[in-house]
């Protein structure tokens, strides 16, 4: 994943408006931001301030109402709905507050199925799935179904899944929201490692001020506006 020190994510004057007229919500309001790899970014802000919407814009799940979103050298807003999945498939790993594991699949299968989607087949996919689970210390829980795992363990499996296919960008929306502070801290430490040791771009939304010292940069959001300083 050669990035030549360029900005991996580049937002220029991006806005997202939900609805029309009277009921229109300016969820993201003229946000500009450049993010480079090898760092952990943390986004904070009150509920409803537009954090998830911003994450979806970066993650090519939403197109902006105005402004431009660049991922590497792709301009997202000019892409068709058919092209966006391929960008996500190759470049982005998502981590969710509610884990979003596939409940019918074991830990190993959760990762393997994702690798399958990304073009890895058979024994190769299985081996890679085990390696990824090993990396998050879940090598001993391969055949467990999500319902038989603790919250922290689920999030580790989800992390392994997000790393499937080796995406340069990891986007996490409150990944510690459903975990106790000790378990949550462990997850953030892994994310920090992934940024620093493996030179990925990790962008995470969090409410937890106790982990801020791990961030390379912290952003604050309020009513759709983004600030680099605490408001």
């Amino acid at each position: 994943m050669s990035t030549n020190g360029k900005n991996v994510i580049d937002l220029e004057n991006v806005s997202k408006v939900y609805g029309h007229g009277e009921s229109a919500v300016h969820a993201v309001d003229r946000v500009s931001l450049k993010l480079d790899p090898g760092k952990l970014f943390i986004l904070m802000g009150p509920s409803g301030s537009g954090k998830t919407t911003l994450l979806m814009l970066m993650g090519c799940l939403l197109k902006p109402s105005s402004g431009s979103v660049h991922l590497f050298d792709h301009e997202i807003s000019s892409m068709s709905e058919q092209e966006l999945p391929a960008v996500r498939l190759e470049r982005i790993g998502f981590v969710f507050q509610g884990f979003n594991l596939f409940p019918a699949l074991t830990a190993e299968e959760n990762v393997e199925a994702t690798l399958n989607l990304k073009g890895y087949r058979g024994e190769d996919a299985r081996r890679r799935a085990r390696d990824l689970l090993d990396r998050v210390d879940m090598g001993k829980r391969l055949t467990h179904l999500p319902e038989d795992l603790s919250g922290g363990e689920k999030q580790r499996v989800a992390l392994a899944r997000a790393l499937a296919g080796d995406p340069p960008i990891l986007l996490a929306d409150e990944p510690t929201g459903m975990l106790d502070s000790k378990t949550g801290r462990k997850i953030v430490e892994i994310l920090h490692d992934l940024a620093h040791r493996e030179k990925r771009l990790v962008f995470m939304v969090s409410h937890d001020t106790r982990i801020l010292h791990l961030a390379d940069k912290t952003f604050y959001m309020d009513d759709g506006r983004l600030n680099s300083e605490h408001p």
Binding site: G59, L61, Q82, P85, A86, V87, R88, L89, E90, I92, F94, F96, G98, N100, F102, P103, T114, L117, K118, R161
Partner: peptide, 16 residues
């Protein structure tokens, strides 16, 4: 539905 949504986020196309 949430699983299908997650699959989409991961990069699954509608066809998948």
């Amino acid at each position: 539905l949430k699983e299908f949504g997650t699959l989409k986020a991961i990069g699954a196309s509608n066809r998948d």
